[in-house]
Amino acid sequence: MTEIADLQMPDDADTLRRLTDRLGRAAEAADLLDVAYRTVDSPLGRLLLAATPRGIVRVAFETETEDEVLDELAARVSPRVLADARRLDPAAREMEEYFAGRRRDFDLAIDLTLVMGFRREVVQLLPTIPYGRTASYAELAAMAGNPGATRAVGTACARNPVPLVLPCHRVVRSDGTTGAYRGGPEAKTALLQLELAHL
């Protein structure tokens, strides 16, 4: 009875791609697409973008493995995670404009589910640092109303769930060195140079 198990057809990979795409659309229509994600290419390598119906919830660099990022989203947001590009189209377009030097601020709804308390307050302050400028961790701590919390501010920036969109790359050490970055120190330097070049 080997013939029963042999129900593969030559175009199976195409069929499954088509069906998966259709599932994404049906899930969106049925309000079941809790987390949609896609990847985009950038000068800093492949970026993973994820969004809930409320807004962009995660931007991940290539240095983080895709499986770990998706596992974290499944555990902390919802296990209803599907690859579906449509919801991320505006984010992908704005990323492209930003890297081309044609965009200074992101105009996207943001879902800060992944960051709580003081850290959330800190990352929400990030867009107040203008394009092409920097602030120190201490200055950001003072802005957050807690001048002694330099370390906590550093942690908040290092774990910012939506880097680029909330520009934690503009926060540097008081001595002028760049400091740590989720996408690596080279990426942080590259972003600051990109912004200086398009000021």
Binding site: D12, L19, T20, V35, A74, V81
Partner: peptide
Amino acid sequence: MKKPFEALVRAHGATVLRVCRAV
């Protein structure tokens, strides 16, 4: 811990398609 649903589609989509074709 629960896997992202996308992982289920990738791992079992082909098996589910065989079942659907057979039935």
